[in-house]
């Protein structure tokens, strides 16, 4: 065993190897020729099956900082100081080091620590808290990392639950968050009310054209803006007593209360489609869309059924779409252009 050199003025501070190992289990002592004469027990654990004694220091470690030191003579002449180093062989664990000279140029004592790389190092080696002296804060740091991960996990869970609650709240709400229009849930309730009270009403199914292209070309923010502009147009062109619903992505349903006059509905559809043809500015960008409309009128039914009327308005919408852009069509009728005349 290597005798650790005596200290001149403090004979009480003499250490034997066991004491040194207990205080600095990651330390390494190198003789004047640069050969390892002692390695601490934790360091030995990191290179299991290798006898470190006699091994050249620079055969085991590569020095990362300071870069100017390339061999042991350099290191010894400079008297050590703070070092950053790593194992030459994989796993190339990184260490922080502090090198101090032994008495009479007998060599160097280099104490090592995992530093910030402790988490990574612990993933590779089979270490327990007994491998660190109680004064080393590595284990405390690992504690903090885990505590932090645990708290992050709780926060993630919290956010997930909040998100879930938001989805439920949105489903239960009667308005669409983006446009402020009524949603499907509200639409069903209004239709149910009108059919039950046998009130006259008309349905207009409005579907946007080229909306996907706006999203693709200008991004979702532009798409959202277009939907908000469309919502504003739909609200402006309808009365207080009508219901404007965002029924899906770019699909809208207008419910006209006690309005079943075909000429008036045709005029409204025409105005709507013409306005939808107007370019919408989003910052520097110009978004162009169009629309198609299908209309169902409760007077056309002996006993109006909301689902049937929605289906018929939907069918009429497709007749419009197939006939070209900016067209409207009454259920069972032919598509008419809003742009003609």
């Amino acid at each position: 065993m290597t005798a650790f050199p005596k200290l001149d003025d403090a004979p009480a501070a003499e250490l034997d190897v066991e004491a040194l190992d207990a205080v600095m289990p990651l330390a390494v002592i190198i003789d004047a020729a640069g050969h390892i004469i002692h390695a601490g027990p934790t360091l030995r654990k990191l290179r299991e099956g290798v006898d470190l004694r006699g091994c050249g220091f620079f055969h085991l470690f590569a020095l990362r900082r300071p870069r100017s030191i390339t061999d042991f003579t350099d290191l010894a002449t400079r008297g050590g100081g703070a070092l950053q180093l790593q194992f030459l062989d994989p796993p190339a664990t990184a260490f922080k080091g502090l090198a101090v000279p032994l008495r009479d140029g007998a060599g160097l004592l280099i104490n090592l620590s995992f530093g910030i790389g402790a988490v990574e190092a612990l993933g590779v080696y089979d270490l327990t808290s007994a491998d660190f002296p109680p004064t080393d804060l590595t284990v405390e740091m690992l504690y903090l990392v885990e505590a932090n991960a645990a708290v992050q996990g709780e926060l993630r869970g919290h956010n997930r639950r909040l998100q879930g609650a938001r989805v439920v709240a949105e489903e239960q709400a009667h308005t669409d968050m983006l446009t402020g229009l009524r949603n499907r849930r509200e639409m069903d309730m209004v239709l149910e009310r009108y059919t039950r009270s046998r009130d006259r009403f008309s349905l207009m199914h409005v579907d946007l054209d080229f909306f996907k292209q706006v999203n693709d070309a200008h991004g979702h923010a532009a798409g959202d803006h277009v939907l908000q502009e469309v919502a504003a147009i739909l609200v402006e062109e309808t009365r207080e007593s009508d219901t404007v619903v965002r029924a899906g992505g770019d699909e809208f349903v207008l419910i006209f209360y006690r309005l079943t006059d075909r000429d008036r509905l045709a005029r409204i559809a025409t105005r709507l489609l013409r306005r939808l043809e107007q370019p919408i500015a989003f910052g520097e960008r110009i978004c162009r869309i169009s629309g198609s409309i299908g209309i169902a009128v409760s007077q056309d039914y002996e006993s109006p059924d909301a689902e049937q009327m929605l289906r018929d308005a939907d069918m009429a919408l497709y007749v419009s779409k197939n006939a070209g852009r900016a067209r409207y069509c009454f259920a069972g009728g032919e598509a008419l252009s809003a742009m003609a005349g």
Binding site: T128, S129, A130, V139, E140, L142, Y143, E146, A147, A149, A150, G153
Partner: peptide, 11 residues
Amino acid sequence: MIRRLLRFGGA
């Protein structure tokens, strides 16, 4: 997680 955090307390 709690077991682990507690066990960091001592060897």
